[in-house]
Design a protein around this nucleic acid. Structure first.
Lengths: 104, 104
DNA sequence: CTGGATCCGGCAGGATACTG
DNA sequence: CAGTATCCTGCCGGATCCAG
């Protein structure tokens, strides 16, 4: 089933959020992502980024600055996920509004 | 972040697939879902369905037949997820095609 | 700064058996 | 048929320390 394929690529607690951050902000360094994706640990960020890179959703570029910095950005292929993630974000947004309405 | 809200509701290995099945087929009984959602165990199906019911994405109806049967269906609120899940399924579909193209 | 190595606890989730 | 109870396991992911 197609849904399984998608969810497998996006498995893990953080991948969608990472992609979401990169989609919003464009190119980001490791440190930026660490700040942007709230609550993630360096090890997890590293691991999730590797998996995203393997699946060609994210491109990793090492800059020979001193000290080394690394930039991450969405690939053109990764950008095909934009619609999906956009929908997810939007739905969550309206879901929140709904909860707020019910609260009072 | 909105994405977190969405993914929390849809957390677990099976929820999206369950919703997907219900979206396609309409109302389904427990047994039907067990067959429809390939690979899921009864315990998991039961648990995920409960969580979906709590979040008002799915409605549970007990029919007093003999023996008892229970029907599940997407709520109108759950149907607002249609676009999201549709996008996921479609993307997975094209992702598969892409993999196939690269394979040869 | 960017990560790899290690250690570790919790819990998601599978198998099986049982109940109303 | 529609679950619940129980047990067991892997591995996800957090904390911490180390290295280039």
């Amino acid at each position: 089933m197609a849904i399984r394929d998608t969810m497998e690529l996006l498995s893990g607690k953080w991948k969608i959020q990472i992609i979401g951050a990169l989609m919003q902000k464009g190119t980001l360094r490791f440190m930026d992502l660490l700040r942007e994706v709230d609550g993630i640990a360096a090890k997890m960020l590293s691991k999730e980024l590797q998996e995203l890179e393997i699946n060609e959703l994210v491109r990793r570029t090492v800059c020979n600055t001193k000290p080394i910095t690394v930039e991450y950005e969405i690939t053109t292929y990764g950008k095909t996920l934009e619609k999906v993630i956009g929908e997810i974000a939007q739905w969550g947004d309206e879901h929140r509004k709904r909860l707020f309405r019910k609260a009072k």
